[in-house]
Write a protein that binds this DNA or RNA. Structure first.
Length: 262
DNA sequence: GGTACCTGGAA
DNA sequence: GTTCCAGGTAC
């Protein structure tokens, strides 16, 4: 049974965990171990923060030494009925997976793109904010494709042509606002130092705890346009890992109107 | 069992 | 910093 906390008890427990210093990674070898271990220490189940108004709160945890982006949440683009990632992006704009014929079948395709609102990717993709129609769209511009992707561009030309995406994947402002409202309205953000012993056993020190409240949709849109917040497609033929919004390190407070170190 | 979602990283 | 990639769970 998961432990039930009041908000004050949860904060007190997080402080206790911070003051424990180094704790062993409970899921050695698993990249998600930093979050799993914290959940174990709290005695809670995954994605189920057992506090009052739990639906308004999120617990996010991150290695402080990582350069990787923070995944905020997943959300498949509209129109969802078209299943646009596996049916269009992967089939028409995908490429042969690096491990096709090795780990995967010869026919394995890949469509992995971390897409910015500030610059186009080398395959010509960009996130564009459409404030008039209140949506976040994905745009493709063949003219912006880097020469080193020329072979791939030829394949796109043969399969679907070089015009703008049709339809363009998008997320409505209201969709994002409501999604963020269920995932990011209030967040406990925990940063962990990492140490690995000579025997390869990994330890964490959960030494920084921030309480972030009051989600800001304007901060969200500005972060996209500034190139701090990315849309990340992540599909291969046998597994669509899903489309996610990912944030640069240390930028999470931009998405909130209030921040408090606890 | 397929889809959408979760946690992330290596070069 | 950009490109491309990973195992796992809820329903």
């Amino acid at each position: 049974m998961p432990k039930i906390y009041t908000k004050e008890q949860l904060i007190a427990r997080l402080r206790e965990i911070r003051d424990m210093g180094w704790v062993k990674n409970a899921r050695q070898g698993n990249v998600g171990g930093v979050g799993n271990t914290l959940e174990d220490l709290l005695g809670i189940e995954e994605n189920n923060l057992p506090i009052p108004n739990a639906s308004e709160w999120e617990l996010k945890c991150q290695r402080s030494n990582t350069t990787s982006l923070t995944t905020l949440f997943h959300c498949e683009p509209s129109p969802t009925a078209l299943r646009i990632v596996p049916s269009i992006l992967l089939l028409k704009y995908g490429w042969k997976h690096d491990k096709a014929g090795k780990r995967y079948p010869l026919t394995e395709m890949s469509f992995r793109q971390t897409i910015s609102g500030a610059i186009r990717s080398d395959r010509g993709f960009k996130v564009v904010i459409d404030r008039k129609d209140r949506k976040i769209t994905i745009s493709f511009d063949a003219k912006a494709v880097d020469p080193r992707q020329a072979d791939w561009l030829d394949s796109v030309s043969n399969k679907v042509g070089l015009d703008e995406l049709n339809p363009q994947p998008y997320w409505g402002f209201d969709d994002i606002y409501h999604k963020a409202g269920t995932k990011l309205l209030n967040t406990f953000y925990v940063l962990a130092d990492v140490r690995k012993n000579s025997d390869g056993i990994e330890f964490f020190h959960y030494n920084r705890i921030l309480k972030l409240t009051k989600f800001s949709i304007d901060g969200w849109l500005d972060s996209i346009e500034d190139g701090c917040l990315y849309v990340d497609f992540d599909a291969r033929t046998g597994h669509n890992h899903g489309t996610k919004f990912r944030l640069k390190q240390n930028e999470l407070p931009r998405l909130y109107k209030a921040i408090e170190e606890i």
